[in-house]
Amino acid sequence: MRLSRDGVAGLILFGISLALLADTFNLPRMPLVPVGPGFYPRIVLVFMAVTSVILVAQDFLKVRAAAPSALAAPGPRRRYDLVAAIFAVVAVYILLLPYLGFRISTALFVGAMQWAIERPRTSRQWAALAAVAIGTVVVSYLVFETYLLVLLPRGSLTGW
């Protein structure tokens, strides 16, 4: 027996709902409210558990019916390496934001992300990359902090 993507997802969600369902019974109750804070989550979790079981069952029946050979015809290659790299770049950006402050980290981020998506080769392309990075920071800082008074994160290390 082999489960496809759907079946695995269903099993994972089923597991999560059972684990959380168990946790709802540990929640304290408040005297003022006739039902405790676990009441509504239990409804949601039971609903989720039931639907995940149906998903797994559907998948199981489908796998048995169809020949297990053909995964969908492979289209052009998808760049999952790039997706992972971009997620990593965004994560680093967000982690550095409170330390370096908005202006420095954003310039680095916009530069890094352009570099990750499209390597600059000529010095002109490098200049364009830097211009976009610095331009984004200058424009967004001026518009938000100076003009619209929307405060942006300040770096605890740089004070900037």
């Binding site: 408040m30 003022l32 804070p37 989550p41 949601v44 639907t51 995940s52 149906i54």
Partner: peptide, 29 residues
């Protein structure tokens, strides 16, 4: 898939359950 639609709804609902409960502020999950 209708089932997947329902599960997606449940996930959305579950996300809102996490954290302080809206009535008595008891932390959940």
């Amino acid at each position: 898939s209708f089932v997947k639609g329902l599960i997606a709804t449940a996930i959305g609902l579950l996300i809102t359950v996490i954290g302080s409960d809206p009535i008595t502020s008891v932390p959940r999950f």
